[in-house]
Design a protein around this nucleic acid. Structure first.
Lengths: 340, 340
DNA sequence: CTGAAAGCGCTTACAG
DNA sequence: CTGAAAGCGCTTACAG
């Protein structure tokens, strides 16, 4: 990698490195003649300033870290896409790290990113993360931090989220308005705030519409998997044969429930309506296709990056940063698994 | 970001920066006493060598670039995952860039990666890339390059691929052996080698089994989309009412075909069998679930990184690099959309 | 208008 | 066993 350096240009033109550098950077105190000579030669040799040297000098890397729990997942793929596209638009590169929902990995990855001296970090927490001192470490090092989706309230940074409770409320309400009288909820594991909020939204909707809440209609999916959805559907129908609606923590679980119904010839939505959450691409492909809550990942990724960028630039201008919480609007997508 | 530096450690201990550096790096010519003092202090202050400075000195960044056509796609998500996991295992970080199947973007992104001085680049070509001088540029700069999946034969580098022709042959053969007599192929656009190879595999299988090949049974899907699958299914059935099998370029197109059959009450697989390609996660969730070719993305990502790493290390040891082409085995996954 | 010097944070060949 | 010096490739305050 014998890249062209300023030194070489200076030698060829018999000038100092200083002058060569200035010529390229539009310093006014360079004669037009040298400026042009340098620029021409630089062009000809395809000179590119060495970013590593610049990083060392400027103490910035024009690179950010993106830490997510998983990647083979429609929502997160979309987030990554949004982050990368917006970052590229602003001259930033993105290092992606995947915690695979492991607290241990997440801790190590934060360190890797900090060691790498990235300018900022975007984080969505692993499911198993219960303690957040490693995230606080980011702030302590004065590296910019924005959290999204799986956030933690005890971190003082900007956050990009959806209103999970409201979205869950609307989803459940939709089931009620379409005629469901007895609605179960397959919730996510305790811990993640999103699980709790979606559960609360479900509960609120029941109460607002005078359908009394029964804790035995709530099933906790540990793995948030297809299998869980299948198994809880079986169990729920056994325990409550008159069940006529299900609201699930996520589309994957809903897909499992749907699968169970199909295999057992239970009519969806005639006998029972199913409402998912997230709007995976696949939700539209199943039979019947799945009604769900659209969670705009691409948009979240873009907004998360822009917020990070804003804070990076505020800091550069010595201005104070006020952490903000931005809520991205969601919408209900009605397909075939619910009635009208 | 007032990180601890060697200089600070040296000052506190009243020794030279040189000695501090050596103590940390197990140079034998340092007294045990200083070594211990330095190490203890470094530990206490949580000293981390500045990677940017190291990169500048060592002319390596321990960072690689990964350039792919799209991310919201089961196969590519898996590839990325494989690359990132394996890279992390070996102390490398990964910058991900998405060409969105655009030749123009791809060109620019190669430049970004080169400017960034990554140690190597992993590339899967955009669908619209017809000219590869930008890829050759990578080699010219002596940056390591490994291509995977969407490769180009006129680049002299290592390649990680599947045997598309063989896989397509097996998929088509499976349809034939299950009793199909008239099999259509929804192929991909001309250009990408994978499209051509899968088409050739289809043709070979017909010929081997004495089912004569008819070009009017081949439909070219421009967008490789759900909609294309739907539309060609309609057209194909109109033009060939006795069609009893379909082999598609990818699962997405197969899903569209499946959808058409469902909406029009055409029995799958009784009236017509459908075979996809890729083994998306969703393929298992559709009704009927889709038979397909499993294309192991995670594995490909890992192997691609390992090959890149191997070449980086060979080069470090001044050894010559022989480009290799590694073929990752595929397998046929039989589900409900084909007969036994 | 030009360039020597100092510095970003580190490593290592060399002298003592 | 220790450290001054040179260097990786750049920028910029300063002197001339």
């Amino acid at each position: 990698m014998h890249d062209v350096t300023l030194k070489q240009i200076a030698e060829i033109l018999n000038i100092s490195i200083t002058t060569a550098s200035k010529a390229l950077k539009d310093y006014k105190d360079v004669s037009p003649k040298t400026r042009i000579a340098v620029r021409n030669l630089a062009e000809k040799l395809n000179f590119k300033p060495n970013t590593t040297a610049l990083n060392l000098r400027n103490k910035e890397s024009k690179t950010i870290g993106l830490l997510i729990p998983e990647i083979v997942h429609h929502f997160f793929s979309n987030v990554i896409n949004g982050v990368i596209v917006e970052a590229e638009n602003h001259g930033y590169l993105v290092i992606v790290l995947i915690s695979n929902d492991s607290y241990e990995l997440e801790k190590r990855q934060v360190e890797l990113l900090l060691d790498k001296r990235v300018d900022g970090i975007l984080v969505s927490l692993a499911g198993s993360t219960i303690e957040t001192s490693h995230i606080k470490q980011i702030l302590k090092k004065e590296v910019h931090l924005v959290m999204f989706d799986k956030i933690s309230n005890d971190i003082n940074c900007s956050k990009i989220i959806i209103d999970d409770q409201k979205a869950a409320f609307q989803a459940t309400e939709k089931l009620i308005l379409s005629g469901c009288k007895k609605i179960a909820h397959f919730k996510g594991p305790d811990g993640p705030k999103t699980s709790l909020d979606r559960f609360l939204g479900y509960k609120d909707a029941l109460e607002k519409h005078h359908l009394s809440y029964h804790s035995d209609l709530v099933y906790t999916s540990k793995h948030v998997s297809l299998e869980d959805g299948w198994a809880y559907m079986e169990q729920a129908l056994e325990e409550h044969p008159d069940l006529d609606g299900i609201f699930t923590i996520t589309d994957l679980v809903a897909a499992g429930a749907l699968r169970y119904c199909q295999e057992n010839l239970i009519a969806v939505p005639d006998k029972i309506s199913i409402m998912g959450f997230s709007n995976w691409f696949v939700s539209g492909l199943m039979t019947p296709s799945l009604s769900t809550v659209d969670q705009p990942g691409f948009e979240m990724g873009k907004v998360a990056f822009l917020q990070l960028l804003k804070e990076i630039e505020l800091k550069k201008n010595q201005q104070t940063i006020e952490p903000e919480t931005i809520i991205i609007p969601t919408s209900i997508v009605i397909r075939q698994s619910t009635k009208n």
